[in-house]
């Protein structure tokens, strides 16, 4: 969408509806708050239940108690006795961080490349990749396992990370957001004599930081919660991730829900921290970053 076409759209919109300032503005504002509050309440409730559950005994949780309890220490002790927490969180952390960094680097390069340097062949490849995105993972698990087994990489973090880093999903995302990247910036940089990789690193990357922020959250979360592949490829208990461990705890004959909810709260924290740290990026405009 070019600037000129945008202005004509605006002109058309203006012509179509030359109405004075909406007298219902206040009512509408109130309505927005009510709806957002409602959505916030519905969204927070299960999270609240999870946090409160971590302070209750298993029996109380089953009875549906939803107020703060006094079993937090008991649950924490039980969790840390039963789960080698430092090791398990370290595993999850290393996998998620390394995978996120590599995914962002490789996939954003590709997304940029597909959009900025279009050619018929690459368009075909891109269309093909989109199709591949839809193959259910279960269909590819056995051959992938064969490959990693032959490479003697079974039960390593590399086996968990490597298949995820070239993410079609994230390539697609970067390609779509790159459409909003002003080509004038690139042209200006070229005139200044910057090389293509410099343009990517010093012009594109800072400008697109809200996109990178969103992608970081999404990719980190996906890797942190990744289940089926790590389940199959990580075999010894000391190499497992927190997501796998929690799933195993839930499947016990007599699950200790206090312990499990304490674990799930801990397991949720990293994603939330990353969201808190990055959410400011959603407020800053792209063009502000360039100025």
């Amino acid at each position: 969408m070019t600037v000129s076409s945008m202005t004509t759209t605006v002109d058309r919109a203006v012509a179509q509806s030359r109405v004075p300032a909406n007298p219902w503005g206040l009512v509408r504002r109130a309505l927005v708050y009510v709806l957002l509050s409602l959505a916030a309440f519905v969204s927070i409730f299960p999270f609240y239940w999870m946090v409160v559950g971590a302070t209750n005994t298993s029996a109380d949780i089953i009875k549906g108690k939803s107020s703060l309890g006094s079993a937090l220490i008991t649950n924490a002790t039980a969790f840390f006795t039963q789960v080698d927490a430092v090791r398990i969180f370290w595993n999850s952390g290393v996998i998620a961080v390394v995978a996120t960094v590599l995914t962002l680097a490789i996939s954003s390069l590709a997304g940029y490349g597909f959009e900025m340097f279009r050619s018929r062949v690459r368009e075909r490849i891109f269309g093909f990749l989109l199709l591949l995105l839809s193959i259910p993972f279960a269909a590819m698990m056995v051959p992938l396992f064969v490959m990693f087994s032959q490479a003697k990489l079974v039960n390593t973090f590399a086996a968990v990370i490597l298949p995820t880093v070239a993410s079609i999903f994230i390539i697609f995302y970067f390609r779509q957001t790159t459409k909003a990247f002003p080509t004038e910036l690139r042209d200006a940089a070229r005139i200044d004599g910057l090389k293509e990789w410099q343009i990517f690193l010093y012009v594109y990357l800072p400008v697109m930081r809200s996109t990178y922020a969103a992608a970081t959250i999404i990719v980190f979360m996906a890797n942190w919660n990744n289940y089926l592949w790590p389940l199959v490829v990580l075999q010894t208990a000391e190499n497992k991730t927190i997501t796998l461990i929690l799933s195993g705890l839930t499947a016990a004959y007599t699950p200790d829900y206090g312990l499990i909810l304490f674990g799930t709260v801990l397991a949720t924290l990293p994603t939330l921290v990353i969201f808190f740290l990055l959410q400011r990026r959603f407020v800053e405009g792209m063009l502000g970053a360039v100025k």
Binding site: F145, V146, S149, V154, L231, V232, A237, L244, G248, A251
Partner: peptide
């Protein structure tokens, strides 16, 4: 004992099928 019964089936089956 860190996997559920369903998980054990998934692991066992994938590996036996992969011949590894």
């Amino acid at each position: 004992d860190t996997a559920s019964q369903d998980d054990i089936r998934a692991k066992l089956q994938t590996q036996l099928l992969a011949g590894s």
